[in-house]
Amino acid sequence: MAADGEGKRIDPISQFEITPMAEWKVGSYDLSFTNSSLMMLIAVGLILLWLFLSTGRRSLVPGRWQSIVELSYEFIGNMIRSTAGSDGLRFFPFVFSLFMFILFANMLGMIPFFFTTTSHIVVTFTLAMMVMCLVIGYGVYRNGWGFLRLFWPSGIPLAIVWFVAILEVISFMSRPISLSVRLWANMLAGHILLKLFAGFAVMMVGAFGLFPGVFGALIPFAMTFALVPLEFLVAFVQAYVFALLTCVYLSDALHPGHH
């Protein structure tokens, strides 16, 4: 409404706009370098920088930075060991990079004016499809046709096992969607909520002037203040949940048939 004239809109959706920074078209495909790609590059660069710098001095007694790295190593390692067993550790590099990428992308999105890559379902769905392709590929490579035991639960009377098998197939097919939707919707909803309340506080001042408007802005400001730590928690928890479910699915590829 009133804010439209200034060129900057106060609406909660414009933060998700993708703007190309360098145009590049191959045929009919648009492969431009966008702000989203930039944020992904920053996330990867930060992870690499962090890991290289803090593991540079491999001391026996770890310093602060080194022990952060060791703690995160053990965090992911224990997660894999407890969900997929010790032979799941062969997927450690994959799960660790996945977790770190999502965590850094989520956390970078919490910085004001930064773009949140994981708030686009294309990104999260690609990550989820990577996981599912790995599960199917490795499951077939390791078990051959035995991978299909995943859909054939043991210990169920033959009369209803085909029914359960159909349900298993449906829930297997829904995995990549629920995996990606969970991360995407959490990030999207959180950022919309933050922007909504923050924008409301600004609009209060804009509508009623500085003196009475500040009191009207107090409540939305308090909401924003309360939401920020919650969003940091969500950013971590969603990265954790994504990695944890990846481990659970990978354990299906390792040991189909008992679950």
């Binding site: 449906i170 829904s174 969607i177 928690l233």
Partner: peptide, 29 residues
Amino acid sequence: HLKPDEKPTSAMALGFKYATEFTVATLVG
């Protein structure tokens, strides 16, 4: 005997997990 002790699963994350699983399974079916 090491187990990952306290897991950072908030109740909201858990509820959201159930909700997406149910909805998505229905939609996929």
